[in-house]
């Protein structure tokens, strides 16, 4: 009998306590409610959630807050691209000018066979660590070190080793956050427009003769691309050719004329 009473008492007392605390909580939730901005929540929901930081804020929620409350422009999210811009405009009723979609690409094709080594590197697989030792193990001090620090840092796995075992960016996967550009010690990772048809896949600023001694696919600044194809928008500066992407032109002939074949597509032909 005593046991039954005991159980009953426990059930009732805990029940009453629970009801009281519950009432207190529901009262508190009404009284102490934090007004959450619906607009921030809605905007955050349509952002890509990579939290890559390309916008300059700490993740997507930070950016959403900055847009709504800080008056930040709505075209800062590179991963979202044009489609996101359209949806943000629809959501907020703001007009925005689109930025051109930029993607990263490695401007170097010097691999084991093409680019000579200076010494045997025997340390951690990390470009920045390797760069501390005589600016990398390659004879060419401007080239890709090939240890894949950019591969590790990429939030969307857009970078990988291609069939030649060289670092390569898949431009369709690239969201343009520039993390790889920041981590690369030799600055071979550069941003180009998504629509770019050709890149000069070399970053060496050395004289042609020196480049030739060190690498068989390096730009030797022969200026054929500039002299023979003045309309194609090539510029040679500091012994290195580069493309002016504001000039729209067919550059296929230039690519074929390049003696070291370092003017290539920034994408793989299917």
């Amino acid at each position: 009998m005593n046991i039954v009473l005991g159980i009953l008492f426990a059930i009732i007392s805990i029940g009453i306590l629970g009801a009281l605390l519950g009432a207190l909580l529901s009262f508190a939730s009404e009284k102490l409610k934090v007004e959450e901005d619906e607009r921030v929540k809605n905007l955050e929901a349509i952002l890509p959630q990579y939290n890559c930081g390309a916008c300059g804020y700490s993740g997507c929620s930070g950016y959403a807050d900055a847009v709504i409350n800080g008056g930040e422009e709505i075209n800062k999210c590179t991963p979202g691209g044009e489609s996101l811009l359209v949806s943000i405009s629809a959501l907020l009723g703001v007009e925005a000018t689109n930025k051109e979609r930029m993607v990263a690409q490695v401007h170097c094709r010097g691999g084991q066979e093409t680019s000579k080594d200076q010494y045997n590197y025997d340390g951690i697989k990390d470009c920045n660590a390797k760069y501390q030792l005589y600016s990398g193990d390659k004879l060419c001090k401007f080239g890709c070190l090939g240890d894949g620090s950019c591969i590790n840092v990429c939030p969307v796995n857009a970078i990988s080793y291609d069939e030649d075992n060289l670092v390569w960016v898949d431009k369709d996967k690239c969201v343009g956050c520039e993390k790889c550009v920041d981590i690369c010690p030799t600055n071979v990772m550069k941003m180009i427009p998504y629509t770019a048809d050709y890149i000069v896949a070399c970053s060496s600023q050395e004289k042609g003769k020196d480049v030739k001694n060190k690498c068989s696919v390096g730009c030797i600044a022969c200026s054929i691309c500039v002299r023979k194809f003045p309309e194609a928008g090539f510029v040679v500066d500091k012994n290195l050719s580069s493309v002016d992407y504001t000039i729209k032109s067919d550059r296929t002939a230039v690519s074929e004329a390049c003696p070291v074949k370092c003017i290539i597509h920034p994408y793989k032909e299917k």
């Binding site: 951690i124 990390d126 920045n128 660590a129 501390q132 010690p185």
Partner: peptide, 11 residues
Amino acid sequence: FLVQKFRAGKS
């Protein structure tokens, strides 16, 4: 390679 990693981080 602890020290090498730290030097990379510092750089």
